[in-house]
Nucleic acid binder design. Structure first.
Length: 569
RNA sequence: UGGGGAUUAGUGUAACGGUAGCACGACUGACUCUGGAUCAGUUAGUAAAGGUUCGAAUCCUUUAUCCCCAGCCA
């Protein structure tokens, strides 16, 4: 943050941090991303990661990755590794700062004892439903528990026995003693500890009482030296409690207690998808998608598999910005960032998804030659490669029309087009099947146009990609489209289900695709552009000799857009 | 009839009492051996009503709409 011009348009959090630094409130910046290891991360989480990591980076601070593992019944060790993979993939480096909330359990316990001794916490024997009922409602105050006035000694002893495992699950809790008629429900004697005789993925059987989020989170932040505890808007109501716990500890806990500060920002929604864990799970369990890494999902593992780059996601998130309004970002912005990144980095290659055979009747039988193709017009250093050409080739079925409409610049009877990097060809004959569908075209070529330029200066309107039939590799392509047909999938009439908005064409699997031979042995994760079609990425389902490509995103396609417009009219 | 937040072009986000700007989208056009990319241009906004002020998106009042909160989840 040394560039003064940037201070003109800092987001509200960075501005506040800059102020805190200037006023001396804090002398450094420490942020953290605190996921609960109970599921896979999606692009919404990526925003929180990006904000926390980006701010630490911009202010030369520290970024911590901390697993908020305070609920053993919901958490699994498997998710810890998956989350680490995703955060690292995004390029957010936590360095040495990998933490587990559960490593603080001893200190949290000691802090709880402090509050009990200060008569600010008590053991409550009421059952859960009674505690819930006694909490009151949004508009009516709660009533105090009969156990609220227990002596410090009794509370100390009971809490000790809770920890020792003497009581069954649910039989008692430790609650903070605040105010049962507080207008903020979170302040009505919130539960600090519950009894859970469960195996903890990180702590094993060490504990049978587990801290609640509100109690644990501030202590974790404090212990790690977090300065700015950034979280999403729904925790705004929890901030008074966050502060209350920390302030009471500062008063009563003896040793110095560091006080971080919580600031909330808005999550975001993305058009044409859903982000809630519940809905994502429903899609999987209902078989609408094939798991958490199905490339149609908004999860990070899915986006990775589909071919998204962390750079594109990062740029998207930066452009979405930070504010306190929960809006809906357009997926077209994400796609824009993706194409921008992929355009400059992806090698170009020719692939025919829906092949139509073309026989070049005046090209010598048995002959083949190698033509020069540019690997990436956006990056001269990517060099050139050789592409084989022969008498029989495949072109895209969509690139031929027997009876073309106006503005169709591709191949048609009697029309001349360019084969990219090869020759001009002219269509002379159509071979059709019984139903009248073209199954093969006969064309002639002009040997003088080798390489794609006509020495006489004549122009063609269209350039087609192609693959030599004899040299082609067979492949599968998976074409993805938006998961839902509506911008807001939850926008359904009364009595209808949001899943009715699922896009039936969100996945189209194409087999028998023909690729140029340079793609013979690519590793899963390999990204390239199929010229004129889109960006593709080799899927882990690929096997030697049988590659599978995911379409990451199409190229912008003005011809398809024109067709759509015409259909509408 | 409780408390806490929010509201600027279609979307997201700036402007912090002094010219309402940027990006994406959409639409035109130019160029092109990818109907890609690139380039040029057009489009469109301060939720409403009052008030303070020389001057208001910004400060005040009222209204409207939306989001969050009654887990021993996070």
């Amino acid at each position: 943050m040394t560039n003064p011009e940037q201070t003109q348009s800092l987001d509200f959090i960075r501005r506040k941090i800059a102020d805190d630094l200037e006023s001396g409130k804090y002398d450094r910046v420490v942020t953290r991303f605190p996921p609960e290891p109970n599921g896979y991360l999606h692009i919404g989480h990526a925003k929180a990661i990006r904000i926390n990591y980006g701010i630490a980076r911009d202010f030369d601070g520290e970024f911590h990755l901390r697993f908020d593992d305070t609920n053993p019944v919901k958490e699994e060790a498997e998710f810890v590794e998956a989350i680490k993979d995703d955060v690292a993939w995004l390029g957010c480096d936590w360095g040495e700062h990998l933490y587990f909330a559960s490593d603080c359990f001893e200190k949290m316990y000691a802090c709880a004892v402090t509050l009990i001794k200060a008569s600010l916490a008590y053991v409550d024997d009421l059952p859960a439903d009674r505690i819930s009922a006694d909490r009151g409602t949004l508009t009516t105050p709660g009533v105090e528990s009969p156990f609220r006035r227990r002596s410090v000694e009794e509370n100390l002893e009971l809490f000790e026995r809770m920890k020792a495992g003497e009581f069954p699950d649910g039989s008692r809790v430790l609650r903070a003693k605040i105010d049962m008629s507080h207008p903020n429900m979170n302040m009505r004697d919130p539960v600090m500890y519950r009894i859970l005789h469960a195996h903890h993925p990180h702590r094993g059987e060490d504990w049978c009482i587990y801290p609640m989020y509100d109690w644990a989170h501030g202590i974790e932040d404090s212990i790690e030296g977090v300065t700015h505890s950034l979280c999403s808007l729904e925790f705004e109501n929890h901030r008074p409690l966050y502060d209350w716990f920390l302030d009471r500890l500062i008063e009563h806990h003896g040793e110095h207690v560091h006080k971080p500060e919580q600031t909330e920002f808005a999550r975001f929604n993305l058009t044409y998808t859903v982000m809630s864990k519940r809905k994502l799970r429903e899609l999987i369990e209902g078989g609408y998608v094939n798991g958490w890494d199905d490339p149609r999902m908004p999860t990070l593992c899915a986006l990775r598999r589909r071919g998204f780059t962390p750079e594109a996601i990062g740029e998207f998130l930066d452009r979405v910005g930070i504010a306190k309004f929960t809006g809906t970002s357009e997926i077209s912005l994400l796609e824009h960032c993706l194409r921008r990144d992929l355009n400059k980095s992806s090698p170009r290659v020719m692939a025919v998804l829906r092949p139509l055979k073309v026989v070049i009747t005046n090209y010598p039988e048995g002959k083949s030659e190698e033509l020069d193709a540019i690997n990436n017009p956006e990056d001269p250093s990517a060099g050139v490669r050789k592409v084989p050409f022969s008498r029989e080739i495949y072109i895209e079925r969509d690139d031929f029309m027997e009876d073309p409409p106006r503005k169709f610049f591709r191949l048609a009877p009697g029309r001349e087009v360019r084969l990219r990097y090869a020759y001009f060809i002219t269509c002379t004959d159509i071979v059709k099947d019984d139903s009248g569908q073209p199954v093969e075209l006969h064309c002639t070529y002009d040997p003088a146009t080798r390489g794609g330029d006509a020495p006489d200066g004549r122009k063609v309107k269209g350039t087609l990609h192609w693959v030599s039939a004899a040299h082609a590799i067979d492949a599968e392509a998976r074409l993805y489209d938006h998961l839902f047909t509506r911008e807001d999938p939850s926008d359904v009439p009364e009595g209808h289900d949001w899943k009715e908005n699922l896009n039936p064409a969100s996945l189209e699997v194409l087999t028998g695709c023909r690729l140029e031979p340079s793609l013979a042995s690519v590793e899963p994760g390999y990204r390239c552009q199929f010229e004129r079609l889109g960006y593709f990425c080799a899927d882990p389902d690929s096997t030697p000799g049988a590659p599978v490509f995911n379409r990451t995103v199409t190229l912008r396609d003005t011809w398809k857009k024109m067709q759509k417009m015409q259909k509408k009219q």
